[in-house]
Amino acid sequence: MAGFRSILAPVAPGDASLDAAALGAALARQAGGALTLLYVIEVDRRLPVTADMELEGRRGEELLRRARARAEAAGGGVTIEDEMLQARAAGPAIVEAAAAREADAIVLGVAASLLPGRFAVGRTAEHVLGHAPCAVWIARAPLERAAPAAEPAARP
């Protein structure tokens, strides 16, 4: 487990991606590396992928801000960058961003299943696990947090 100098942590609504940001920061700190927080706006095909997504953008900024706060608390001085981009689907965009930054690892938060004993990883995580050139760490939220009220962390 050589040092993870460059870590990518995708950000989505839900606690799991905050956990992932914290985990990513801790890993980066250990290796003296840097963490990138990434928010992907998925643009519906009714619109061009470059469409102006103002509302989504504001939501992304807020989520990035919260993730950064968690990462800073866990990373103690580690360099944290954030990035927002627009794509048709988050999975391929995350993989592409990881390749472009030559990331050593992607840390991805996924929500726990609401059905104990059953777990479906979700299409974003599935794509990342199947395609990422680097290591992938999955941070799953604890079961007790997966009460019906919680928002799913990864996109379905």
Binding site: D44, R45, R46, L47, P48, R88, A89, P92
Partner: peptide
């Protein structure tokens, strides 16, 4: 095709609509 595929029946108006047929 780098994700440029959609599962659906293109004969259904709602599928074409969701694919952004208007543009």
């Amino acid at each position: 095709l780098e994700g440029a595929a959609l599962r659906g029946d293109a004969c259904e108006a709602s599928v074409l609509e969701g694919a952004g047929v208007r543009r």
